[in-house]
Design a protein around this nucleic acid. Structure first.
Length: 116
DNA sequence: CGTATGACGAGCC
DNA sequence: AGGCTCGCCATAC
């Protein structure tokens, strides 16, 4: 298991529910010089059911800088599933597959859960 | 060990 | 406003 991947997964695991982040954004936060593509690899390599910090890695919250779900070799299957998962969190995905970054892009600051 | 590939992104045209 | 090309980096062969 790669250290780079674990770092990436660690960042992704912090994306709050109902928010999205871009590959480039994750790459920068993970401290990678410019490996947006590497983040893609990391997402593809996420073991099913992997948990970090006690929580599953929300790979579906990672989209590209264009605000769209990245098409992959199997657009019909995985991408559609990702759209559904996002919608289930209250994130609106237009029929064309567009997501409003102004609205859902994660600021990068992990929200603190008020436990008082 | 060199080459090709890909869930990206910034620049150009 | 799209669409194309090139750069980055970790894998696959």
């Amino acid at each position: 298991m790669n250290k780079t991947f674990r770092t990436i997964w660690g960042v992704v695991a912090v994306i709050p529910r109902g928010r999205v982040a871009t590959y480039g954004q994750i790459a920068r936060m993970a401290g990678l010089r410019s490996g947006a593509r590497t983040v893609g690899w990391a997402m593809r390599a996420v073991p099913d059911g992997l948990r970090i910090g006690g929580r599953p890695v929300p790979w579906h919250r990672v989209i590209n800088a264009s605000g769209r779900i990245s098409p992959r070799l199997d657009p019909a299957g995985e991408t559609a599933r990702q759209a559904i998962r996002l919608g289930r969190e209250g994130i609106e995905v237009s029929p064309g597959g567009a997501i409003d970054l102004e609205r859902y892009l994660w600021s990068g600051v992990a929200p603190r859960r008020s436990s008082s």
